[in-house]
Design a protein around this nucleic acid. Sequence first.
DNA 1: TTCGATCCTTAATCTACTTCAAGGTTTTTT
DNA 2: AAAAAACCTTGAAGTAGATTAAGGATCGAA
Lengths: 193, 193
Amino acid sequence: MNIQPLIAHIEKIIPLDEAAKQDLAAKTIFKKLRRRQYLLQEGDHCNHYNFVLNGCLRLYFVDGKGSENVLQFATGNGWVADIGSLHTGQASRLCIDALEPSDVLRIAKQDLIELYVKHAAFDRYFRVLTENAFVAMQQRVLQNISSTAEERYLSFLEKYPHLAQRLPQVQIASFIGVTPEFLSKIRRNLMEQ
Amino acid sequence: MNIQPLIAHIEKIIPLDEAAKQDLAAKTIFKKLRRRQYLLQEGDHCNHYNFVLNGCLRLYFVDGKGSENVLQFATGNGWVADIGSLHTGQASRLCIDALEPSDVLRIAKQDLIELYVKHAAFDRYFRVLTENAFVAMQQRVLQNISSTAEERYLSFLEKYPHLAQRLPQVQIASFIGVTPEFLSKIRRNLMEQ
DNA sequence: TTCGATCCTTAATCTACTTCAAGGTTTTTT
DNA sequence: AAAAAACCTTGAAGTAGATTAAGGATCGAA
């Protein structure tokens, strides 16, 4: 199993010594997913942090009316987990599944804790990682509050041009927080100009 | 200057040795704010992480139409900063000011980095802190997408009962993402039941 | 003690977005 | 190759919430 992409990703933030790399390799699990396969299902306990090698996963929430609301897409070199459930140990209210056939590296919660304790570099890496994710999430809250759906769609195109090509409209609509019908209308309006 | 509340808050997550406490104390700046006083203004570079001892601050964004959109309230034992600006060094698009007269402890960016390097405990502490903040922000995105304004208001009351008493309605409206007029209507509807 | 801010509410009109229903196309599975 | 899913669009009708405008209440400063 080749965990090189993961190591490379970590070393963009902080160098790892040999011992750290070996411990990491020993705790990394490889998993292949088909399209539509669950990695986490509502009610499960989220026990793994997942690093996507290739393909595309989504983290989403099924609300009272049965609609899916996408919180996050994860493609190559991205992480995905229900961090809330992972930390508190409570059952998750979120789902993770594969939008495309995907390859994933997983680290179990207990192993992650051991890595934190043994190698301070991992605290640093996940601190920076989470700070970046936090900033992105904060900007999204801002945008939801202060922009129209059309503005949100345009900014999605700008920010994730590769995803815009790759994903079905339904998923994009769900991410920016509108119905697929309305996104269709937005797109038509944009075309006409 | 008494930084005991800050130390206590950190030690809920990870113990600090004497050296770490002393280095922390040496880098901590005390600041008193009047009501309405800015701690960070749009266009400034955010160079400090701020720990609130007492009072209440808000982090907010002024959008194209000139409306204020509250991202976060910070009261006793809470942190507030524009983490994005703090990290990238770019000018901030956010503002921080005091809703009540407040006392704040500040750590400058450069000092924070030195603390990270010298004492691994700080990487751990801020990792956990940011993970919690991230989870909260994620839940907020979810709620914005999948709930009505009334549901968001009720959940605000549940989650921050002390703030609901203390803050003007305008601020609460801005936090949950509606106009003050509409919040007023929501409150009336709730009364009538 | 009064003047100006800030704050809260009400009501009328307006609009961005949802819901529902339907038909056509493309992709996936068998 | 056929059947079944998933996907995208269109239009009509409905609704949550914004906007505008106005009046009254409370608070803070001089």
